[in-house]
Design a protein around this nucleic acid. Structure first.
Lengths: 319, 319
DNA sequence: GGCTTCCCATAAATGTGGTTGATAGGTTGC
DNA sequence: GCAACCTATCAACCACATTTATGGGAAGCC
């Protein structure tokens, strides 16, 4: 059996062309290196190096061996790295800051999967709207920020972080059951413009205004609440119409509201933002489970036909 | 650095599901195996096995490591096999630099024999006059230099190399057919001195001048060409006389030239020069076949009675 | 050519690490 | 609850790797 330790010494001899230099490089004495090479040669039964001027050159057999050793050493490094990742999952910690809807609609499933895969990882979760979540991330007070961004909002480019796109969350139109729009195949603009609107958080309101403006009217927004149950109940009572992300709709659908079978009226992009650079194993694992969760969910879910996953597999992009 | 030896022990533990069984299988004691696993775990910083009923099971980290170890062990076996192939002449490479006459008169037969004995050995051949061949050898750009040396040339003593004498190549006198000297049993000095001479390479010319001077005259050298066919044709046309090594004469004998049955007018020593020290198997094999080739050739060949192999069997001597 | 410098090979002494044998603790199955 | 079996730990022994010391050679530089 060839000893990898000796193989590494041979590699160093090959690289430096001298046993003495290899000894220096490896913090050995020269006779130690000499001895190891001799042992290696005895084991394989053929010369591996020949003296050449000052120093030594490899024979063909030596070159062949070094080539294999190179690959093997790289492979062992891989193994060690992989094990370190697993070891990290044994005692890791992840802090997640996540906007409320995802805290209910995405994280529980992802965390359950993580618990199964890495029971030792301790997860703490705080809910925070995207700006606050990113602030926490910048301050180093969270490891992952799960955020969303509407199309009209500019992506802030901060090279210190990476955005992993998780899903496109389509916006559905919500009207009271029995409302004329409930059965309309294509809502007419003037009908929408005549409605009273309810809306959620500040960013959602901004988006609603932006989208309506682009369509050619200014919505009459009479109600504003971040609670998606409350907002649905306002609709159910016939007080307003609204738009709601499919994710929120999946958490709770109030009786008395109708979701017209019309194309999505827009969408928001849900992403996980993490610090750039190497990720601690626990963080990488939770990211994995997050992407896997949304992938499984959208694959199984046929209700929201506009609910499109990103065209390509979730990939890292500069924020 | 992960020790492959321990990796193999872990593999056996994984295979058999028990340290005791692995110890039996590897002819170790149980504590030895236990100790090795513990060391391995200390090195990677995470448990690799967990007790499970009677025996042990691998953790995920353990499974990952075993997987890598399997591949690495296979790879090391490949390496050993490949080296064994080189050592066993089933593979390998030899580079030969050889002077032109020997490239035609010696190498083809020797290489054919080598091919038969070691079909896997790849040979590359370049022709080079002795000084260039030795330069290639010194630079490490060839494994064997086949060279010749006239008696008047001093052997250069370079302890880094070994000279294996292959043959003494006698110089034959060549005259036009029908020439008075063609039938002379002993050419008279004044007849030779009166002739016009042709000669080959620079070293051959030097030797001709040196030999003639020793005999007591200065030759009139009118023609110089390294091509031994050209030189023979000059003789055949009656333009000159010359000397030619028997080896060259064996390659081609031009109609119209006569080789007087007189003692050889000198000789050159043909040698193979190789780096001192242990020889790669393929190099040693080609050296063998070279000596065997000249031995067989001179044994079978009765035409040049003066063509003497060295008194002793070819042996290594410092150049 | 003689000198210095650098490199490899070998031999003996030393220290670290592997192996062994004995033993204790824990789990399974009857 | 007992017996069988397996792993963990400890101390002693042994082997091997490494070091220190030394000699021989080759390369480069006056």
């Amino acid at each position: 059996m060839l000893d990898l330790h000796r193989g590494r010494i041979l590699r160093e001899v090959a690289r430096l062309g001298s046993m003495t230099a290899a000894a220096r490089s490896l913090a050995y004495t020269q006779p130690a290196v000499s001895h190891h090479i001799a042992r290696l040669e005895a084991e394989v039964g053929t010369p591996l190096v020949v003296r050449h001027g000052r120093g030594v050159r490899l024979t063909e057999a030596g070159r062949v061996l070094v080539e294999h050793v190179e690959d093997v050493l790289a492979r062992m490094d891989d193994a060690q790295e992989q094990i370190a990742a697993i070891a990290g999952l044994r005692s890791g910690r992840v802090r997640v800051a996540v906007f409320p809807t995802a805290a209910g609609g995405l994280l529980p499933d992802a965390l359950a999967r993580l618990r199964e895969r890495a029971p030792g990882v301790a997860v703490t979760l705080v809910d925070a709207e995207p700006p606050e979540a990113l602030a926490l991330l910048r301050a180093g007070d969270t490891d992952i920020a799960v955020v969303f961004r509407y199309a009209h909002m500019p992506p802030d480019t901060d090279a210190r972080f990476r955005e992993v796109v998780l899903a496109e969350d389509p916006l559905r139109l919500l009207v009271p059951a029995g409302h004329p729009l409930a059965s309309a195949e294509r809502p007419r603009l003037e009908d929408l413009a005549a409605e009273t609107w309810a809306s959620g958080c500040a960013r959602c309101r901004d988006h609603l205004r932006w989208a309506c403006e682009r369509a050619g009217f200014a919505p009459d927004i009479a109600f504003a609440t971040e609670d998606h149950v409350a907002i649905q109940r306002l609709v159910a009572r016939g007080l307003a119409v609204t738009t709601l992300p499919a994710l929120a709709l999946g958490l709770h659908t109030e009786p008395g509201v109708a979701v017209p079978d019309v194309p999505a009226v827009g969408s928001r992009r849900i992403s996980a933002v993490v610090p750039a650079g190497p990720r601690p194993p626990a963080v990488a694992a939770l990211l994995d489970e997050l992407t896997a969760t949304v992938h499984d969910a959208t694959a199984a879910d046929t209700t929201p036909p506009g609910a499109a996953t990103p065209d390509t597999a979730p990939r890292d992009t500069a924020v």
